[in-house]
Write a protein that binds this DNA or RNA. Structure first.
Lengths: 112, 112
DNA sequence: CTAACGGTTGGATGATTGGCCAACTATCCA
DNA sequence: TGGATAGTTGGCCAATCATCCAACCGTTAG
């Protein structure tokens, strides 16, 4: 099976990473992955009410930004954080974001 | 003069901060502010080719996300980073982002 | 071989964004 | 009082985004 495109470490851009993380759903996904280590799409999707194609879209955004790494195994996709790459490129970034994310309730995020 | 709206510390949301920083122009502004300490709009705008109303838009995004603090002084607006607030809420976040931002050339950010 | 499974893709839609321009507000100076 | 200065606001536009649905594709199980 053709592996989905994911950027080499050198091509990971800070702005893209930030943009990928600047979404409640994706931030939750990343927080989840950080404790789970690696999960397949169904599991990540399990707790949400979101359509699977929407989730697929979010998988892609994270993957193409260089935040996650996807491995195809049979008919499943295993997704994990690119911790080593991200830590090397942006030391402390992931830790501080994850720390803040778990601290801050994932409540309605928009001001009105 | 009526001060522009800026959120109290308690209302600052991680996702909004990330979203505010997930833009090349705004990221550059924040990097600049971090070394300058405090600047008025004209100075921040000085090096850019961007229309002043566009910059005004970016000032607002940063301000309403809680990233910057704006003080009106006469007919000028002095903008600074809300370092203390952000550091207290999201320890290490600003440092790691600024570190990464200055390291990474502000080159074209989009993959094609 | 065929059906079910896991996930992606394409299309449609409504909301949001970033950009510019012109007009406006508020302040200061002469 | 009448500019000039500093920045915001509203209108508009093109581009992007998140979401859903339906159709699809590759893999495994019966």
């Amino acid at each position: 099976m053709k592996a989905p495109w994911q950027p080499p470490m050198v091509e990971i851009r800070l702005v893209d990473v930030l943009e990928a993380l600047a979404d409640p759903i994706r931030l939750t996904m990343v927080a989840r992955l950080s404790s789970a280590g690696s999960e397949k799409c169904t599991d990540i999707n399990a707790d949400t009410h979101v359509h699977k194609s929407t989730m697929s879209h979010h998988y892609r955004v994270l993957r193409e930004a260089g935040v996650t790494w996807t491995v195809v195994q049979g008919r499943e996709r295993w997704i994990s954080l690119r911790r080593a790459d991200l830590d090397a490129l942006f030391p402390g970034l992931l830790d501080s974001i994850l720390g803040a994310a778990t601290l801050q309730v994932q409540a309605p995020t928009r001001r009105d």
